[in-house]
Design a protein around this nucleic acid. Sequence first.
DNA 1: CGCCGTTCATCTGTATACAATATGAAATGC
DNA 2: GCATTTCATATTGTATACAGATGAACGGCG
Lengths: 225, 225
Amino acid sequence: MKQIRRRQVVRTGTTVEQMVRAIADMIVTGVMHPGERLDELSLAVRFDVSRTPVREALRELGAMGLVDREPNRSAVVANVTEAYLHSMFEAMSELEAICARLAAERMTVDERHALELEHRASARLVHANAQEDYAAHNTEFHTRLYRGAHNDHIYEMVTQTRARLAPFRRAQFRLPGRLAKSYDEHDVIVTAIMRGDAAAASQAAFSHVAIVSDASIVFASDKAE
Amino acid sequence: MKQIRRRQVVRTGTTVEQMVRAIADMIVTGVMHPGERLDELSLAVRFDVSRTPVREALRELGAMGLVDREPNRSAVVANVTEAYLHSMFEAMSELEAICARLAAERMTVDERHALELEHRASARLVHANAQEDYAAHNTEFHTRLYRGAHNDHIYEMVTQTRARLAPFRRAQFRLPGRLAKSYDEHDVIVTAIMRGDAAAASQAAFSHVAIVSDASIVFASDKAE
DNA sequence: CGCCGTTCATCTGTATACAATATGAAATGC
DNA sequence: GCATTTCATATTGTATACAGATGAACGGCG
């Protein structure tokens, strides 16, 4: 009498892994905001499963750092301290620098070519001030860098760090002129990588992320309620 | 009528967090070997809880990378590929280098002093060839470096990476002469940090870990059955 | 009028029951 | 005798039931 309406909600096979991805996605893409509650029952209803797999998903998200959990409290979208946020941005700079350096040394000819193409293609988006599309390109660009380092563990770390930072830098490309600056910075990185200049690539990648960090931290503190 | 016998086995409050730590510890300290099964029922009996919290602990360990999980199979102690192992060691070098650099720049006077004391104290262990004790000292020494970088996120990453590597470098100080070499390498790092030479500290830390990596990988492939 | 304790609703933590899947052994056909 | 199928058993995956904790509403009492 209480399961009259089934099958209305998320409509997946709904394994725990899929739930993890779905929830992580909501957090990373900003559908859910830091501090927002994730109560088990609501999620269970939403995904049309019992609380058991929901709990497992939440625990996994907790281990990833995307949600905060305390005993006998609902999990909440991770709401990091300003100090920790700063440490993540700094770590991100360091990781990007490493990736750029290794990429300059290790990328295959194909990878270099693809990176350059991706980069050149984004020029159009800058001129059109297509912020959404540029953001997507930006993700792709950086992912190519991370992959280009040819180190799976570093890739894991940088990807996870990036995911955890995502909720805090949503608005980065809204800053006036940021698109063009981003493009120029990418250009320096690409140029260095193309000529195999590890030091220059590393330096450029470090600054690039550091700049984004500064801007984002401002925004993050803006929307702190 | 069926809970006559409780409280016989592991004797903790046995929260999930404690189980995670306990199992992680068994893996990291080498009580359990890569590939070994972790079946839920055995663990449940062992910790005197039901399978539900055990499953959550295993999922968390899976997220940490300490155990591998596949659908409908028992979790097993993580058994990484040689390629991935190599990527972790390389990442470890990079992270250590970062920590040493930042530590050289940021450590407080007290921290520097404590690091130097810790280091000097270990000389005795080298002469006595006290491998176990030196291993403990070594952990402490590196932890001081990580903390000294004053970056919580990097600390998390390096700590987690170190934990995942632990099962694969158990025997590092068994190599003849390794203790003395380790001490000398630490010495270079400490000296550089004491005089605030970030570049030298970074370089020394990088090589130090890279050397350990080489040795460990040999050992790891030795004992691959 | 305000403070404190009680009660109740809500939610998490854990145990248990059951369903689904994989594994290994026995049995059967070739 | 070997391969294959079938079935039993062990183990994971999920749902449900219940116990414990937390927070809020309410009412008594100073």
